[in-house]
Design a protein around this nucleic acid. Sequence first.
DNA 1: ACAATTTCCTGCACGC
DNA 2: TGCGTGCAGGAAATTG
Length: 281
Amino acid sequence: MMPELPEVETVRKGLTSLVAGAKIKSVEVIYSKMLNVSPEEFKEKLVGKEIIKIERRGKYLLFRLSDDLTLVSHLRMEGKYEIQPEGTERPKHTNIVFHLTDGRELRYKDTRMFGKMYLVKNENVFDLSGLNKIGPEPTDNDLKFDYLKHQLHKSHRKIKSFLLDQSNLAGLGNIYCDEVLWMSKINPEQQTNYLNDSEIESLRKNIIKEIAAAIKGHGTTVHSYSNAYGEAGEFQNQLHAYGKKGERCERCGTVMEKIKVAQRGTTFCPTCQVIHGDLSD
DNA sequence: ACAATTTCCTGCACGC
DNA sequence: TGCGTGCAGGAAATTG
C-alpha cells in the first residue's frame, strides 16, 4: 500500500532485473479507464516493442521502449507488478497483462483501480500533466536549500500540504511526510512562510537522509505492499511517527496524536512538534 | 493565481 | 451472521 518514492524505486530495480530486454508479444487490457489512449491503440502500439530500460521520476515509472516510445506508469495507492509464466492463475484485479515473447506475463494489478498508464512518444513524456510541473528529486544534488526556502516562503500553506504537493519536490507521500516532520521537529500544520533557516536545513537534510535510507531498506511495507520480486520492504521497522498514534514519542515520551491535515491522517508529537509564528533564526 | 475541497475506487474494520 | 458506515489515500478536477 501507498508506494512512495522508495517503493517505486524498489519496483523499478525489480522490474529492471526481470524484464529489461524482454519483448512484448501481445497485450490484454482488462480495465481501460486507467489508460490515456483507447485499448485498441494501446495494444497496437505496444506489440513488438522491446522494454529497453526502466527509469523513474518522482513516483512515476518510465518504461523506455523501442521506437522512441515510453510507457509511463503511476501506481497511486495499490498498483503492483508481477511476472509469472503465461497461463498461470491471475490474481483478482489484474488490470493489464503484457505477454512477453519468452513465455512470461508481466501483470499490472490494482485493487483500488487508482493507478494510471500513459503511452507517449519520448519527446512528450514531460508534457504529461503531473510530470510537466514535477519538482526536484529529494537528493542532495537536486533539492537545493535556496530553492526549498524560496518555495516555502512564497507559499502560505501548512507544511504537510506543501510536502505532499509533487510540484514542490518529488516523491514524498503520507508516510515519509510524517517521518521527516517528526525528525525535523516541525508541526504538520506549521505555516511554511514562518519556517526559519535552521528548520529548513534540518527538513532538507532529513528528507534526503530518510529517502536514501528507505531506498536502501527496499521501502516500507504497509499492509500488503510488495515489490516486483514479491519481497516485502523492511523499512517499516524504522518508522517513528507514521502509524504510531497512542504510542509514546521516542524522543520525549509524550503520547503521539493523530489529526487530519490536507485530508490525510497525520501522526505527530504534540510536545516535540510545536507550531510557531514569525521567529528569527 | 493560489489554496482548499471533492472525486475516483475497493477492501476492511467496526458497531449493532 | 450480516449489513451499513467510515476510513484508507495520490493526484486530477472542481470550487472558492
